[in-house]
């Protein structure tokens, strides 16, 4: 976006050369690292892909029937988490960047940044000890009055440790990082754009909708992708909060819940031996591929809208 038209040849400088080469080198390092991880995963996973339940005790029949419910659970939990987290994080970011008094906003922004650092173990502890008991009556109510909606059907859990709880804990976990990025992007909106909108008589919301949101769209998608990545791969908190079984169900409030790949690895890995270890690593590979697919879709969406993305 910044190079001059081709005919005019800039003078080659040593500094430029060194700088651009090291930038390319750094980019390539990522390729190398990722390739190394992928090779490691594939090599470790291959024996498991064709294993039977006789070779690996963890399998019921074969690998694919084992991983199926896990993939469902992973995507399902992450999707619910994003449904909560995206609008709320945009809301918080807007509140901090454009609604709250500036002095308050700085403090709030700082608190949100800090919460990104709370270790997932702590979210797990909080989920079991504080959050899950608190939502039990809400679930019972939803189940009783809205039970005819399939999502809320079944028998409501007595402990509150359901997939909905796990997804909400995930949402709380990914909120800080998403909010921080959204806020940072919203704050970068050119002041001139905002003032122009206000000067034309726009209300604050119209200004936000016309100047801030279009400007921040790619940032919002970036934040969502980061949040989704964390939600898909989150291990400890889900393992601790969720009452997990390997099933496929859309019911949100029962104690029988699908579990996620990462949580399942955390639960099963310590006692795994022999080929079971390969099976678990193979599920890691599947998670890798799922993330790959989800990201491809997200990127495709952003690229379609490229012409609107930002200041340039």
């Amino acid at each position: 976006m910044t190079t001059a038209p081709a005919p005019i040849k800039a003078k080659a400088r040593l500094g430029d050369l060194v700088f651009s080469r090291s930038a390319v080198f750094a980019g390539s390092m990522i390729l190398v690292a990722l390739a190394a991880v992928a090779i490691f995963l594939i090599v470790q996973a291959i024996p498991a892909l064709f294993a039977t339940n006789e070779e690996a005790s963890i399998l019921e029949t074969n690998f694919w029937s084992y991983v199926g419910p896990l993939v469902f659970g992973t995507v399902w939990a992450a999707a619910i988490a994003l449904v909560f987290a995206v609008p709320i994080s945009i809301g918080i970011a807007l509140f901090i960047s454009h609604y709250a008094p500036r002095r308050l906003a700085a403090v709030l922004g700082y608190i949100v940044d800090l919460l990104a650092a709370v270790p997932s173990v702590v979210f797990g502890l909080w989920g079991i000890g504080v959050f899950a008991p608190a939502v039990v009556p809400v679930y019972a109510w939803l189940n009783e009055y809205l039970g005819w909606i399939p999502l809320f059907g079944g028998t409501a859990s007595a402990t509150g440790r359901t997939i909905l709880t796990a997804a909400m804990v995930l949402a709380v976990m990914i909120l800080p990082i998403m909010t921080a990025i959204c806020r940072e992007v919203f704050l970068q909106t050119p002041v001139l754009h905002e003032e122009a909108a206000l000067a034309l008589g726009a209300t604050r919301w119209e200004m936000v909708r016309m100047a801030v949101l279009p400007f921040g769209r790619s940032g919002i998608v970036s934040a969502s992708v980061l949040g989704l990545g964390r939600a898909l791969g989150e291990t400890m908190a889900v393992a601790m909060v969720l009452s997990a079984s390997q099933v496929v169900t859309f019911e949100l409030l029962t104690s029988v819940n699908p579990t996620t790949i990462a949580a399942n690895i955390a639960l099963s890995f310590p006692e795994a031996y022999g080929l079971n270890v390969n099976v678990l690593i193979a599920t890691g590979l599947i998670l890798f591929i799922v993330t790959f697919a989800v990201n491809a879709v997200a990127r495709w969406i952003v690229d379609r809208r490229k012409e609107f993305s930002g200041a340039n």
Binding site: I58, I128, G129, A132, P133, S157, A158, T159, R161, A239, M240, L242, S243, A244, S245, Q246, V247, S255, V256, A266, L267, S268, E271
Partner: peptide, 25 residues
């Protein structure tokens, strides 16, 4: 080592199980 029955309330580790039993009724 893995609970053989599908479904039911499950909790991670001794600590998680004790917390769950304590937290429920």
């Amino acid at each position: 080592g893995v609970w053989p029955i599908e479904g039911g309330e499950a909790a991670q580790g001794t600590s998680g199980l004790v917390d769950t039993v304590t937290g429920g009724n």
